[in-house]
Simulated scan of single mutants.
Amino acid sequence: MVAYDRILVPTDGSDGVERAIEHAVEVATIHGATVHGLYVLNSDAYAGLAMESSWESVDSLLREDAETAVARVREIATERSETDGTAVPVQTAVVEGKPSREIVRYAENQDCDLVVMGTHGRGGLDRLLLGSVAESVIRASSIPVTTVPVEA
């Protein structure tokens, strides 16, 4: 059996991604691993904002959302611990950049053994037009990636 010591679970703060977080915590519980919760601030996505918007206030709001999202990773691990008495250590981080690139970079830099990601399971034209962070991570990562379907 493969043992995992460090499991990365990227989050975007959506309700659906909680299934992936719960799965990562479950695997961490079985293996005695640490869960790393990661939020990537995709600043490119906000480049089109009107210049009268104050970048400082936008940045502040984005960081608040990011901190809330990674805090939820810790909350889910704590809830699991309260249920069965098994504590799962959690580390969290917020980074900036292109999500797929930063997820792979973080996983490699932190010597993660597994990446657990939510995926909407889009196929065909939707994936072609919208892209898929999970697919990009799978293609670029030397670290195993488990995808968990999330609800729309």
Rank of each mutant, 00 (worst) to 15 (best):
D15V: 15
D15A: 15
D15G: 14
D15Y: 13
G16A: 09
V17P: 00
V17L: 07
V17S: 03
E18P: 03
E18L: 09
A20W: 00
I21D: 01
I21P: 01
E22C: 06
E22D: 13
E22Q: 13
E22H: 09
H23M: 15
H23L: 12
E26N: 11
E26P: 04
V27D: 04
T29V: 12
T29N: 10
T29I: 12
I30Y: 14
I30V: 15
I30S: 12
I30A: 13
I30G: 05
H31Q: 09
H31I: 07
H31A: 13
G32C: 04
A33Y: 03
A33Q: 05
A33N: 04
T34F: 06
T34L: 09
V35D: 06
V35G: 00
V35Q: 00
V35W: 00
H36G: 04
G37K: 01
G37Y: 00
G37P: 01
L38I: 08
Y39L: 07
Y39F: 14
Y39C: 05
Y39N: 01
V40N: 01
V40C: 03
V40L: 04
V40W: 03
N42I: 08
A45K: 09
Y46P: 01
Y46T: 08
Y46R: 05
G48R: 08
G48P: 02
G48D: 11
L49K: 05
M51E: 15
M51R: 15
S53V: 15
S54W: 04
S54V: 04
S54P: 03
S57E: 13
S57V: 10
S57C: 07
V58C: 05
D59I: 07
D59N: 09
L61N: 12
L61F: 10
L61P: 03
L61M: 13
L61Q: 13
R63V: 05
R63P: 01
R63T: 05
E64A: 04
E64V: 06
D65L: 07
D65G: 08
D65C: 02
D65H: 11
D65E: 13
A66G: 07
E67R: 10
E67L: 11
E67I: 05
A69D: 03
A69I: 06
V70S: 06
V70A: 02
V70K: 03
A71N: 05
A71H: 05
R72W: 02
R72P: 05
R72C: 03
R72Y: 09
V73S: 00
V73N: 01
R74D: 14
R74E: 15
R74I: 10
E75K: 15
I76W: 00
I76K: 06
A77M: 01
